[in-house]
Nucleic acid binder design. Sequence first.
DNA 1: CAAGGCAAGCTAATCAGATTAGCTTTTAGC
DNA 2: GCTAAAAGCTAATCTGATTAGCTTGCCTTG
Lengths: 190, 190
Amino acid sequence: MPRAGLDPATVVAAGAALADEVGLTNLTMGLLAERLNVRTPSLYKHVSGQEDLSRRIAVLALNEVADAIGGAIQGYAGRDALAAAAHAFRAFVLNHPGRYAATIGLKPSDPDDPDDPLITAAQRSLGTFRAVLRGYEIGEADMDHALRMLRTLCHGFATLQAAHGFQMSADVEESFEWLIAFTDRGLRAM
Amino acid sequence: MPRAGLDPATVVAAGAALADEVGLTNLTMGLLAERLNVRTPSLYKHVSGQEDLSRRIAVLALNEVADAIGGAIQGYAGRDALAAAAHAFRAFVLNHPGRYAATIGLKPSDPDDPDDPLITAAQRSLGTFRAVLRGYEIGEADMDHALRMLRTLCHGFATLQAAHGFQMSADVEESFEWLIAFTDRGLRAM
DNA sequence: CAAGGCAAGCTAATCAGATTAGCTTTTAGC
DNA sequence: GCTAAAAGCTAATCTGATTAGCTTGCCTTG
């Protein structure tokens, strides 16, 4: 009976994948163990419990979002960068609802601890939004507000759509494009 | 030993209050029973389980949001109505994080069933946003998109703030005002 | 006012899922 | 090959949801 050869990263990756499939709330240690061909208690050798698992999934997700947006905006600026970032963000949330859900409502970690990988990952994904805004003429004073707006829009739209929150008739894709255009116009008019 | 005299509405109201205090995820049937001076199984005489309870809390919350926004925008139009609605919405989410959380990620109910109180409540709160937009010169074609944008902004900002998502230096209140002004400008420019 | 019946509450039991304790055994490093 | 840490396992505990079935308060009807 050979060993499974797990390590924290493998467990977290499998947990994230499973969360995307069944939903974060339905992710149980038992289900994850089964997926990894291991008995439930064995998982505790790699993660300290559900909260730890969830937090690590969140870190993974935030880094992946950062990578996705970062890659998508390469070579673009202004409206093109905005659109690319928004689409990349939303695609990530729709394709990985489970792991994105893990990034919401985490116990607020000490924002001063620069060793916390969660902080690092959050900063990275924030950095990509900041990069998008560099393509606009935004004063120093407005930068943080604009950044928060961008986050609000992306997060809000993606989570509402993922939760089937848009049940009106109009096409959701069209609304998303409309939203991007609206934001671009506003930012350029600053 | 007199009876507790519970009914579904009482149980749901207590559940909503408790969810606000301890968080929706920490709302257990046992805790709720204790709050109502009743044994856990007794709750099942009034709600059919946790999912049912959560759904009813969501209905309550959506109706309360609609009332809050509806009341706040009375007598206002344009930018004043927009600001009043946004503030009312956010205040609700911040004061009642538990019950608002219940409105997210519910199993999508049949949108065609007009008897579902959840649909009714959702329509009501949507109606208040529609009322805000009537103060702007928005063409028929843009209405649904603008409506979705408004929801996106309110939902996104409030949930991010409730989740302690804004850890940058700038003042959150200031960002919120900035966001409202940005949106107002954009809508007026249509 | 008494009888009947429904529904609210209760106790006891079952079940799923998280987590811990303590044992066994692979396997990396010497 | 030897040994010790780490990885897995079984067994056990605990919390929380839910169901079954009993008891009894309370409202209605006669």
